[in-house]
Amino acid sequence: MTAPDPTPDPTADPTAGLRADARRNRERLLAAARDLIAEHGPEVSLDDVARRAGVGVGTVYRRFPHRDALVQAIALDDLRRLVDAAEAAEAEEPDGWGALCRFTRTTTADLLLAYRLSAWFASAWNALRTTPENVRLRRSLMQALDRMWSRAQAEGAVRPDLTSGDFALLLARVLRPLPNLPEGVDDPGRSLAIVLDGLRTSAPTPLPGRGPTADDLDVP
């Protein structure tokens, strides 16, 4: 008899049927894994995640039998957070430009995490890309960005010759970290502020952080 695949379906509702304590444990595990990946990169183990979350190793393996399952759960959860942030910005901000800026500035950490997961865990990421839930969430995110972008253009806030696709590609390129730079030089908040100003039709706003010098960039 062939053993069933132990990997949970990454497209299913991850909290369906869970008790409140089990739901809290899952949230703690995902939060711990996010933090550890941000701090230590791709070498994080499930045992590391259990220790950071303060739960037993068995709890981790019951939820995520191997690291790819955990990475896929993080990726989908992160994408849901991005969709929620985009839709909230769209609904609550008085204009399209304000909505775009709010989304960009409040989701930098989530956008960085998405890039890191795709670069560091390519096999898990690629297996997830064509699943129905991933496709649905990515489409929802791009539709929300497109609505905000169209609104900002109609208001005369952004250049008329650019598209929401240009905006999404710029975000992806800016958030790609460069290796071996000195501490504090590769500031995504500063880079994003420059990109946002480059999209506007009005005067630039003050930039956060400091600009890198030629010496900063003279690295091996």
Rank of each mutant, 00 (worst) to 15 (best):
A152G: 10
T205I: 03
V174I: 15
W149N: 03
E133W: 00
W120T: 03
R116G: 12
T11N: 15
F64K: 01
D197G: 10
R129V: 11
S202T: 15
A124C: 11
T163I: 03
T130H: 13
D48R: 11
D21N: 13
F64M: 05
V60F: 05
A99K: 02
D146L: 02
V49M: 09
A119P: 04
S202D: 15
S150Q: 14
V185T: 14
T11A: 15
D21R: 10
T7E: 13
P208W: 09
L137N: 07
D110H: 14
A214W: 08
T205S: 14
P65A: 07
P206M: 04
D166V: 06
R147P: 01
P206C: 07
F64I: 06
Y115H: 14
V135I: 10
T2E: 11
D21V: 08
S118M: 08
L192C: 05
A16M: 10
D95T: 12
L137D: 06
L175W: 01
A3L: 15
V135R: 15
D68H: 11
R151A: 10
L181S: 07
P65E: 07
G98N: 00
A53Y: 09
D186E: 10
P206D: 06
A119G: 06
P204M: 01
A33K: 00
V158I: 15
A122W: 07
R151H: 12
L207E: 09
T11V: 01
L178T: 07
D77W: 02
A33Q: 01
S118C: 04
E92L: 11
P206I: 08
S123N: 09
P14F: 03
P212K: 09
T107H: 06
P6S: 10
A203M: 04
V55K: 09
A124S: 12
G211S: 14
R23D: 12
L192M: 15
A193G: 06
V135G: 01
R138F: 00
T7P: 00
D161V: 03
R67S: 04
A119M: 10
D77T: 11
A53R: 08
D197W: 08
D197E: 10
R136H: 12
D77L: 01
L36W: 05
A99S: 14
R23T: 14
T213G: 14
Q143P: 00
T201K: 04
R105L: 15
E92H: 08
D216A: 05
D166W: 08
D215T: 11
E133Y: 00
R28W: 00
D35I: 04
V135N: 02
T108F: 00
P10I: 02
R28Y: 06
R23L: 14
R19A: 14
R19C: 05
S164H: 13
R159S: 11
P177Q: 05
E93L: 13
R139G: 13
L76Q: 13
R52D: 11
G96V: 06
